[in-house]
């Protein structure tokens, strides 16, 4: 047994165990943490497959960003431990396993059937489609670097100046992203920009000028609802209310002084 297979077995087993933990644990924080482990192990499997870019994205986006978001939401909403596995509702306990088995059968069929090919096998043919180009880029870039020779630097196969070298997909992907896919890439960055602007506009505190008229408890982070007693939001609202009252008193005092 090669070392690679051994490493794969370790990663795969850990991924399965931690995924089971995600379902079985009662405390949502434990579930989230075991999800981190599952993601990390799957990233390991990706590296074994030679897809180090996807592995890096897996760690950065899923383990880094999304999991932290989960934990933040749990912290803010103070999620309590859920019901144990044998006391789930019918939808979860009855429908879930059926769906799981269906997916399992699907995966087994895909693996075992040799006739399963997308696009009649065209997708890997070196014709002019984007998929074929990308496929060629990915295949060659694992052990081959793209160096500019006679023609312009493209990933179109050996004829266009690809010489043996060692650079991963990341370079090939980056080049495609900033040349062929520049337009959607830039638009995607605009989408992130408006998401940031929108989040700030909707979630920011009311401006000082409308504080005087609005009911004090309807402001703050909670989008208009009265926050629960003892929660962070309630504390924040209280702080703001007392501040604005103090400000008003100070104003009155200055008015009186002027008189």
């Amino acid at each position: 047994m090669a070392l690679e297979q051994l490493v794969f077995l370790v990663f795969a087993l850990l991924a399965i165990v931690t995924s089971l933990g995600l379902v079985i644990f009662k405390d949502p924080v434990h579930c989230a943490l075991s999800l981190v482990f599952a993601f990390a192990n799957i990233a390991g499997v990706y590296i074994l497959l030679g897809a180090e870019f996807i592995a890096a994205i897996q760690v950065l986006v899923y383990s880094g960003a999304i999991l932290v978001l989960f934990l933040f939401v749990m912290m803010l909403l103070q999620v309590r431990p859920g019901p144990s596995l044998n006391r789930l509702r019918f939808f979860q306990s009855g429908f879930g396993p059926v769906l799981g088995v269906a997916f399992l059968v699907e995966v087994v069929l895909v693996v075992l059937t040799s006739g399963f090919v997308l696009n009649g096998g065209n997708i890997t043919k070196p014709n002019n489609t984007q998929a074929a180009k990308m496929q060629a880029g990915v295949e060659y870039s694992v052990s081959v670097n793209v160096i500019q020779a006679a023609g312009p630097l493209t990933i179109q196969g050996k004829a266009d100046g690809i010489q043996p070298n060692t650079v991963g997909h990341t370079a090939a992907l980056g080049k495609e992203l900033y040349s062929t896919y520049l337009f959607p890439f830039e638009v995607a960055s605009i989408i992130l920009l408006i998401a940031a602007i929108g989040a700030i506009v909707i979630a920011r505190r009311s401006l000082v000028s409308d504080e005087e008229e609005d009911h004090p408890k309807r402001r703050g982070i909670s989008l208009g609802s009265v926050p629960a007693q003892g929660s962070l939001q309630a504390f924040e609202v209280e702080r703001q209310t007392s501040q604005s009252q103090r400000r008003k008193e100070a104003k009155k005092r200055t008015v009186i002084l002027k008189k």
């Binding site: 638009v187 989408i191 929108g198 506009v201 009311s206 309807r218």
Partner: peptide, 28 residues
């Protein structure tokens, strides 16, 4: 891809605009 990013840009902007009246529960 351009269809997708374009539709998303316009839709996400409109989601935000729908919730712009923050003091109004109906808006949220």
């Amino acid at each position: 891809m351009a269809v997708f990013v374009g539709i998303e840009l316009s839709s996400i902007a409109v989601y935000i605009l729908t919730g712009f009246a923050r003091n109004d529960r109906g808006s949220a």
